[in-house]
Design a protein around this nucleic acid. Structure first.
Ligand SMILES: NC(=O)c1ccc[n+]([C@@H]2O[C@H](COP(=O)([O-])OP(=O)(O)OC[C@H]3O[C@@H](n4cnc5c(N)ncnc54)[C@H](O)[C@@H]3O)[C@@H](O)[C@H]2O)c1
Ligand SMILES: NC(=O)c1ccc[n+]([C@@H]2O[C@H](COP(=O)([O-])OP(=O)(O)OC[C@H]3O[C@@H](n4cnc5c(N)ncnc54)[C@H](O)[C@@H]3O)[C@@H](O)[C@H]2O)c1
Lengths: 244, 244
DNA sequence: CCGCATTTGTGCACACGTTCACAAGCTCCT
DNA sequence: AGGAGCTTGTGAACGTGTGCACAAATGCGG
């Protein structure tokens, strides 16, 4: 589309896309597309059609094309999308080009599992700090990272340069931890505690509630057992990550 | 509303509500209301208005009322909702009245954390079986539960009576595990592996992808850093769990 | 017994998200 | 060079979700 576009995908990179307004629903699906593209790339696929990519990502082909159209026209009619180029463009758009530094607050069962999870690295994130209040934990190491005390949060944040915080404390402490993080300038929080966090509107807060997910499953399971199934014909295979 | 309504909420229980069609978006919020109600109940609150409950659950009051109206008319105009009664009704609707038996496939970092998580019990779920392929793990115990071998899946499912399966295996194995579960009659699956699972449409599959959540956060964080913030005035504090 | 303050339940309008259907554009083959 | 066969990008229809605004209903105090 641009006058000169080399074989190397990097050439035609513009500013951060349309600069404004990618629908939230689209943003929520872009990571899925990126994962699908990585998978295809690993298998040596160089070009992919919207249909095939949509299958891999588990969405409707029209939806995929509309989503991608919000980033720009990166496909070629009659051919499809260059896997490498599209991967680069989506990666740039959602900021997976850089390695985001992440801090984990609350190194219990879940916090430890997250800290040891190798998956994060391949997705563009790096755990750079661990914080807890339990003095028995402070000072010990996980994967070469020393656990710091919650009282030193501000210093730990400054030293590590973390930009995204993950809260894995018990629900009671979550709001207090959130307030402290916000006071220290953190504006992106992922919360695993089963509480609604209130934060200033410029702070992005996302929640992952396992219990909630199970309860939604239980609702559907109960309906099936109640014999209301398969009374109607609508699709029930639901894949959620954000809201349906 | 019903002619005779005793102090004990159990009296007026009908069939499974309107029997059909509670919007999916509402279903996704009901667990949150239930949690809020439990919290209020713990604090000795007996009656609550839609405004207060909405605050606790982090939603719009009108939304809350509309959601609840799908279950029936359980409030009293001029007064509000009985915490105990509403809790009972929502619990019955989403099936949290019973203790759902859960099986966890893949007892690694994450699977172990989930198995040890006491939260589940209080939300109406009980881990009744653990399965793995790693022979070093099979036979060992976690919280009094012996880890079974994946090859004995069918027998383990039958013996434990599990109705909901949680997949915490590496992504490569997830689809195979899913297929086996479906073949054994499981119709509700929660998947933590970063893959899109394909299953028959009568099987409900939900996905939790931490990497995806972080990437969505990273997108917003990048926009803030890019100085596109606070250029516009719209709300950005997003709380997700399902999808929008 | 009546009027007032309060809160629910819901009709309605709007915004957002999804899917269809098709013109525009590309490649390849003859 | 030209047409056949695909595939993208997008306008338009449709469906779902959200939030306002208000009538209906309840309790209370005088
Ligand atoms: N483990 C799971 O599988 C799971 C599943 C669903 C939800 N959750 C939720 O995730 C959260 C963590 O779960 P967990 O199993 O790891 O709990 P956990 O009790 O094992 O760990 C909590 C950790 O947080 C630390 N902590 C407490 N207060 C703190 C504070 N103010 N600042 C810093 N650290 C603090 C504790 O010392 C402890 O190490 C809980 O809210 C739980 O409900 C966990
Ligand atoms: N640990 C985390 O915090 C985290 C975060 C995000 C995503 N995930 C995802 O969750 C999944 C599990 O993560 P983890 O850290 O626990 O990994 P892990 O490697 O620690 O555990 C995986 C377990 O699954 C078992 N397993 C492998 N194949 C199996 C099969 N066919 N049947 C039964 N069991 C099998 C392995 O023996 C192992 O015990 C992965 O897909 C990972 O990407 C984990």
């Amino acid at each position: 589309m641009s006058p000169v576009e080399g074989a190397t995908p990097v050439a035609a990179a513009g500013a951060t896309a349309v600069a404004k307004g990618i629908p939230e629903a689209t943003v929520a699906r872009l990571p899925g597309y990126l994962r699908a593209l990585n998978h295809l790339s690993d298998n040596g696929v160089a070009t992919v059609s919207s249909g095939d990519l949509a299958d891999e990502a588990g969405v409707n082909p029209a939806q995929l094309r509309k989503d991608l159209s919000h980033l720009g026209s990166y496909g070629t009619r009659g051919v499809g999308y260059s896997v490498a180029y599209l991967r680069f463009q989506i990666g740039r758009e959602i900021g997976s080009a850089v390695d985001w530094p992440v801090i984990i607050i609350g190194v219990g069962n879940l916090g430890t599992a997250l800290a040891q999870n190798a998956d994060f690295g391949s997705r563009g994130f790096r755990v750079v700090a661990l914080v807890d209040t339990n003095s028995a934990l402070v000072g010990t190491e996980i994967d070469g990272l020393t656990i710091e005390h919650q009282d030193d949060l501000r210093r730990t944040l400054r030293d590590s340069g973390a930009r995204i915080a993950v809260i894995t404390t018990p629900p009671d402490s979550a709001q207090a931890v959130c307030d402290e993080l916000v006071a220290c300038g953190i504006t992106s929080i992922l919360n695993f505690a089963a509480t609604v966090l209130s934060a200033p509107h410029e702070v992005t807060v996302r929640k992952v509630d396992l219990g909630q997910e199970l309860q939604i499953l239980a609702y559907h399971e109960q309906r099936k057992l109640d014999g209301l199934w398969p009374a109607d014909d609508d699709v029930v295979a639901v894949v959620a990550g954000e809201a349906p």
